[in-house]
Each structure stands twice: as C-alpha cells, then as structure tokens.
C-alpha cells in the first residue's frame, strides 16, 4: 500500500469519525428517543465556533478570542452547546414531531445567520482563520499530526460509544425507549416524558457540539459555509442508512454515506464529459433522491436495523 494512500485514508477516516460522533448524537435523539431534530448543523456550529473563540489567540479585529488551551476549548464547546440545547429544548421539546423538526431547522438557520452576520465575534463571511491544532508543533510532518489526531478521535469515539451503550442499557435508557414507543403508557408509569426527552436532546446535541469542536481543531479554519442545511441532511442520511436505533449502524452509516458522497463526484467527473457537468450533476442528485425513495419503499429498516433487545437480559427470557 502506498504511503500516500495511507495518509489519505487516515485523513478520510478522521472525517468519518467526526461525522460519526454527530450521527451517534442524532441516533440517541432520533433512534432511541424519537426526537426529530432537524437543526443538527446549528449545534455543530455552536461547538465549532465556541471552540474557535476559546482557543484562538486574541486578534485586533475580533472581540472575544481567548487563546486558551485545546482541552478548555473542547470542554467549553460542550458546555455552551449543552446550555444552548437545554434552552432550545425547553422551548420546543413539547411540540409534535414535524413541528419540532421545522422549529429546530429554523433555529439552525438562525444560528448560521448569526455566524455570518456577527462579524466581530465570528469573523463573518470571511471565516475564522488560524485555529490552533492540539500539539501541532510537536509533529514534524502533517502526516504525523493527522495520525495522532486520528488516534485521538478513535479514543473519543470509543469513549462516546461505550458511554452511550452503557446509559442506553441502564434503566434510564429503557425509560427513554418506553417514552418513544408509548408516551402515554410511560407517563402512566409515573415517568416524566418531557424531562427524559429533554435530557436525551441535550446529551445528543452536546455530542454534536463536541464533533464541531473536533472538526475545527482538525481543519484549522471555520466559516458559515460549513453549517449549511446540507450537513443536517447528510447526518440524517447516515442514521437512516445505517439503521436508526443502533449505534453501530450510525457509525457504519457515517462511513458508507461519506464514502458515497465523497466519491460520487469523482464518478460523475470520470463518467460525464466536462461539457455536460451541469447535467451530470443533476442526474447525480436525481439518483440520490431515487435511492432514498426506493430504500424507504423496499428496505425501510436500513443496513443494520434496530437492535431488537433493550436490555441484556431480554433474550434470556
């Protein structure tokens, strides 16, 4: 295997892992709780910008930069995203599914507009340059840094995965599923559905914020362009393709969808002559749309599908 391919592979998988964390967050909200969060890009953006503001050294044209260490940035990004999710959740969590979707979508649009218009804080449309990467100076080559970061991401994903599996198998996780399946029954059993849904919403969104912070400290640049609604669509595709209600599925979905997404452009450019690139692009999107519709019609459970067991003891009955 050529060196270049390894180097590219590490980079590619790093992006998959970051997107995988977002997908895990959505899977908690949607797959396990039934919350239709259509504002993923918004929480991702809050994490990304909070981290950028905390870690980038002060600069004359920006008001809030702090230049604090990477770890503080990550913690801050998670804390701020959690807070934002809690406030947004308080206002919206009671809404019926599709209303919640439109509301959260609207919030994500608003957040993106703030990153675009609040220039003194976010750098506006110019973007935010020079975001420090952790321990970057210690590595001699970009490849060495990427490898280190990849290992770091692997560890974070493993931790997140383990943590999610644990809480989902705990009594808390079972209540969550009960709330999703039959809210009335869950309420009758004395569980406050709203508060469980809110907790799940906040935890899931915090993971999205974490992923945003990990993304910007990997790339070193952030702009409002990174948080267009297409990001939300991609993450949803990952969870649906992988099979919602299954954390392995979410990660596998992240890999599959990102692989197809990144390579479909290559395929089109190889297959369609440049003169017809515009039509080629249209056909590409039509195929994506058709795939989505056909998958829903003929394979509604995704690649893996939901895990049937709720607790470890369920299959022992």
């Amino acid at each position: 295997m050529s060196m270049g391919l390894v180097s590219y592979g590490v980079f590619f998988l790093s992006v998959v892992l970051i997107l995988g964390i977002v997908a895990l967050g959505l899977n908690l909200q949607w797959g396990y709780t039934g919350l239709f969060n259509a504002g993923i890009a918004g929480f991702y953006a809050i994490g990304a910008y909070t981290h950028s503001i905390i870690t980038t050294p002060p600069r004359a044209d920006l008001i809030a930069n702090m230049g604090l260490p990477w770890v503080v940035g990550i913690a801050g990004a998670m804390a701020v995203t959690a807070l934002a999710a809690w406030i947004i959740g308080l206002a919206t969590i009671r809404l019926r599914g599709d209303y919640l979707a439109i509301s959260t979508f609207g919030i994500a649009v608003t957040i993106q507009l703030v990153t675009l218009n609040f220039e003194a804080l976010t750098g506006g449309s110019q973007g935010f340059t020079g975001i420090p990467r952790p321990l970057y100076g210690m590595f001699g080559s970009p490849f060495a840094f990427n490898l280190f970061y990849f290992a770091l991401l692997l560890a974070v994903v493993a931790l997140v995965y383990w943590g999610l599996e644990r809480i989902l198998r705990s009594p808390w996780g079972r209540v969550l599923k009960a709330v999703r399946e039959d809210e009335t029954a869950a309420i009758a059993l004395g569980k406050s559905a709203i508060s469980f849904r809110l907790q799940s919403f906040v935890i899931g969104s915090t993971l999205m914020g974490l992923a945003g912070a990990l993304y910007v400290s990997f790339i070193g640049f952030v702009s409002p362009f990174d948080f267009l609604p297409i990001v939300t669509f991609q993450i949803w595709a990952m969870v649906i393709v992988g099979g919602s209600g299954n954390n392995k599925g979410a990660l596998l979905g992240a890999l599959t969808v990102w692989l197809i997404w990144a390579s479909s452009g290559v395929a089109i450019t190889k297959l369609v002559p440049p003169a017809h690139a515009a039509q080629g692009g249209a056909i590409q999107v039509i195929l994506i749309g058709l795939m989505l519709v056909l998958a829903l019609l003929f394979r509604p459970r995704g690649l893996i599908g939901e895990e049937t067991m709720v607790s470890r003891h369920a299959d022992e009955r």
Partner: peptide
C-alpha cells in the same frame, strides 16, 4: 476533482490529490 461547493468535500478532494 469536484468539491460540490461543500467545504468537507473540497478538503477531501484536496487531500486525495496531494496524497494519492
């Protein structure tokens, strides 16, 4: 390579060009 007007796709394309 195509960037689809999307930052992550463009970065991936650049990395591919440089490394592979």
């Amino acid at each position: 390579r195509d960037d689809q007007g999307q930052p992550t796709v463009g970065v991936d394309a650049a990395k591919y060009l440089v490394e592979v």
